[in-house]
Design a protein around this nucleic acid. Structure first.
Length: 357
DNA sequence: GTTGGATGACTACGAGTCCTCCAACA
């Protein structure tokens, strides 16, 4: 994100609107905004951690998107607003804090450090897991999310449930062989060869770079064209014809071919329904569809408690959830600032809420 | 109208929870 020229901060952290210069740096899934009050040398940091649906948007202040939970207004006329848009409210932000300590170097902006961090720690227990699960470990793969892991593994035809260490050690051997073979090549030829035959770690850098480079607002679902472009860019994730399985953390991994030796047992691979219609051979008893997983209405359990009855029907997944357990009370000073959850009841609120903005 | 899954990460240590939206289904 480029440096913003001159912005006014609006929000309850600042009682009176003051002029700030704002610069932003990103690392993995975090973004730090540094606020420098005009006429003062002091700065203030805000670190944002994005959830599944969080993003920043710069738009006219009179046309704020839905779920714009934090707004920085420009001083121009008419003003624009830099908004933290987070539909699901999974994102969080901290005031005056640094990067999260347990995240490794960023796969995009700190590639060499990222690579070294992985290669020097191959004996870590994180690499005992399947490669698809290791790729979501932000201690080593800071910035890789669910769709990126699918795209990266798909391009290299690596079975997602192959052991991570097996994959990375094989890659290490290939790297040494390549170095010996390429020792006489010029730097440009080495780089060209690397681009033509990237290894797993190189793709962890290159694939996110493709997303960044493709279009400025590629991931903004409010712009249907951009979102369509993003979906068109995807080669594996959510693509009809690809298989999917739940990993051991409950996240869906999309892949093609064999899942690998560490695939969860007793789970059947699913394929996108569009492909099922187009491919009659795929209609085997092993395919699980949403309909087949659904509990028949006649088999529905009655409400388990009077409280559930009193709450009335809930939509979607919330209906089947267990009641939240009571969390120990924490003072606001002890907890990181999180986006306000205005519809939560106090009993369900697990952390201190951020000020309304 | 209902259900479950979706670009994360937390707590507690496997599975539930936070929240909103929407495609797919009966």
């Amino acid at each position: 994100m480029p440096e913003c020229p001159e912005l006014h901060l609006a929000g309850r952290y600042i009682n009176e609107a003051e002029a700030y210069r704002i610069s932003a740096t990103a690392r993995g899934k975090e973004l730090r905004l540094t606020l420098a009050p005009l006429g003062s040398g002091a700065t203030q940091d805000l670190v944002f951690r994005f959830g599944m649906s969080g993003s920043f948007r710069l738009c006219p202040a009179a046309e704020l998107p839905r779920h714009a939970h934090l707004r920085f207004l420009t001083s121009e006329s008419p003003p624009r607003a830099l908004c933290f848009v987070d539909v699901r409210r999974f994102g969080s932000w901290r005031l005056g804090d640094a990067w999260q300590l347990d995240r490794g170097p960023c796969v995009v902006s700190e590639y060499q450090a990222f690579r070294e961090n992985v290669m020097k720690n191959l004996d870590d227990k994180a690499f005992d897991k399947p490669i698809c699960e290791a790729l979501l470990n932000q201690k080593f793969f800071n910035g890789i999310g669910n769709y990126l892991r699918a795209e990266i593994l798909y391009r290299l035809k690596i079975p997602p449930f192959e052991k991570a260490r097996t994959v990375l050690e094989a890659m290490k051997d290939q790297e040494q062989t390549r170095r010996k073979k390429n020792s006489s090549l010029t730097l440009s030829k080495k780089l060209k060869q690397m681009r033509n035959n990237p290894d797993l770690l190189e793709l962890c850098h290159a694939v996110p770079m493709e997303v960044i480079a493709t279009e400025k607002n590629l991931l903004d679902p409010d712009h249907s064209d951009n979102y369509a472009a993003f979906k068109n860019w995807l080669q594996c994730y959510l693509v009809p014809g690809m298989s999917s399985l739940r990993d051991h953390n409950g996240r869906t991994i999309w892949f093609q071919g064999e899942p690998g030796p560490m695939a969860p047992k007793g789970q059947r691979s699913r394929k996108k329904r569009a492909q099922l219609k187009a491919d009659p051979e795929a209609l085997t008893p092993e395919v699980t569809t949403r309909a087949s997983k659904r509990r028949p209405k006649t088999a529905e359990k009655p409400p388990e408690s009077a409280e559930e009855v009193a709450d009335g029907p809930r939509k979607g997944r919330a209906r089947g959830r267990k009641k939240a357990t009571a969390a120990p009370a924490l003072s606001q000073a002890e907890v990181p600032v999180k986006a306000k959850r205005s519809r939560q009841t106090p009993a369900r609120r697990r952390r201190g809420a951020a000020p309304a903005v």
